[in-house]
C-alpha cells in the first residue's frame, strides 16, 4: 500500500475543488429567492441540470440512444422508476445490438 506525495496532493486538490462546489450553494442568500423570477429559475434547476447532463448522450451519440431515451421517457410517464430504468437498459442494449 503506497501513498505517493504527488498523488496525495492531486487527490487533495480534487477534494478541495469538490468541497468548494458542494458548499458554495450554502452561501446563497435566502433573500435572493424572494423574487418570482429568481424562484422560477431555482425551481427549474433540477430539470435543467439533468437535461444538460444527459442531452449529449441522448441526442448526439447515435440513433439507438435517442430511440431508447424516447422509450424511456414514455415509460417514465406511466411506470415507477425501477421499471423505467429496466426499460431504458433493455432498450439501449437491444437497439445497440440491432445497430451493430
Amino acid at each position: 500500500m503506497s501513498l505517493d506525495p504527488a498523488t496525495l496532493a492531486a487527490i487533495l486538490a480534487m477534494a478541495a475543488a469538490t468541497i468548494f462546489t458542494r458548499l458554495a450553494g450554502l452561501v446563497m442568500p435566502a433573500s435572493a429567492l424572494r423574487h418570482p423570477r429568481a424562484r422560477a429559475a431555482f425551481e427549474a434547476v433540477p430539470a435543467a441540470v439533468l437535461a444538460a447532463l444527459i442531452a449529449p448522450t441522448v441526442l448526439a451519440t447515435g440513433w439507438p440512444e435517442t430511440v431508447a431515451a424516447l422509450l424511456t421517457a414514455l415509460a417514465a410517464l406511466r411506470l415507477p422508476l425501477l421499471a423505467v430504468v429496466a426499460v431504458g437498459v433493455v432498450a439501449a442494449a437491444l437497439l445497440r445490438a440491432v445497430a451493430g
Partner: peptide
C-alpha cells in the same frame, strides 16, 4: 444507459413545474 434512464425518469417527475418543456429543451 441506466444513468440516463434514471435521469429521464427524474426529469419526468418535474414535468408539472411551470415552463418545464422550454426549460428542458433549452438546457438540452
Amino acid at each position: 444507459f441506466a444513468f440516463t434512464a434514471i435521469f429521464i425518469g427524474l426529469i419526468a417527475g418535474f414535468r408539472h413545474t411551470r415552463g418545464f418543456l422550454p426549460t428542458v429543451a433549452a438546457a438540452a
